[in-house]
């Protein structure tokens, strides 16, 4: 490897690291916005930021399929459904509840969460680190993910279908017309 190539590799890694911190920061900011915004629409929009930056993090990990799925399913389909429902309800400023003492609740929550966060920080620091680089061999492709899903993770894959059925029945029961089927 020539000297130039080594420097380029180091630059790539540094760039990937900066990208990681940028995306991680954005995702946290989006999540904070989701909690702090008063109007649900703004909350939903800032949640989109979180979902998209998570997709970026997946891409940094070379998880190509997961990156696409995250964008299409979460940031695309699910968020547009949520936003559609919020718009459908046409929420005005006077519909929003009075949020008295919100600051106090947030402060209390922060006090509770701080030790857990410190605990988590210690744990995450103990995990072995590795460089962000592109992994070849088709890692993260549809084919590879599919093989793993159907070979090693067959059982969870199958029982998710039961979970979806339950969700389906639940939607019919809780949101269907009242008094039908008696």
């Amino acid at each position: 490897m020539t000297k130039k190539n080594i420097r380029k590799g180091a630059l790539d890694i540094m760039f990937a690291e900066w990208l990681f911190f940028g995306l991680a920061g954005l995702s946290v900011l989006g999540a904070i916005g989701l909690i702090l915004f008063r109007h649900p629409m703004n909350g939903a929009m800032s949640f989109v930021v979180t979902l998209i930056s998570l997709a970026g993090l997946y891409a940094l990990l070379s998880a190509k399929l997961l990156f696409a799925v995250q964008l299409i399913v979460y940031a695309g389909a699910i968020m547009s459904l949520i936003i559609f429902i919020i718009m459908f309800l046409n929420i005005q400023e006077h519909d929003l509840p009075d949020e008295e003492g919100k600051g106090l609740f947030l402060l209390g929550g922060a006090v509770v969460i701080t030790p857990i966060a410190l605990f988590l920080y210690k744990i995450v620091k103990s995990l072995p680190g590795s460089d962000t680089k592109i992994i070849g061999n088709g890692f993260g492709d549809v084919r590879e993910v599919g093989l793993i899903l159907f070979k090693n993770w067959l059982l969870p894959f199958e029982i998710v279908s039961i979970l979806l059925l339950v969700a389906l029945v639940g939607a019919v029961v809780l949101a269907g017309k009242k008094g039908v089927g008696k």
Binding site: W153, L155, P156, I159, V160, I162, L163, V166, A167, V169, G170, V173, L174, K178
Partner: peptide, 26 residues
């Protein structure tokens, strides 16, 4: 005997029970 399987089973159980709790919509 595996955490993800356990999680999905836990959710199957909980989701059905949420719906059962809210069955009476009136």
């Amino acid at each position: 005997q595996e955490l993800i399987t356990a999680f999905i089973s836990l959710e199957i159980m909980s989701l059905s029970i949420y719906i059962l709790v809210g069955f009476n919509r009136t």
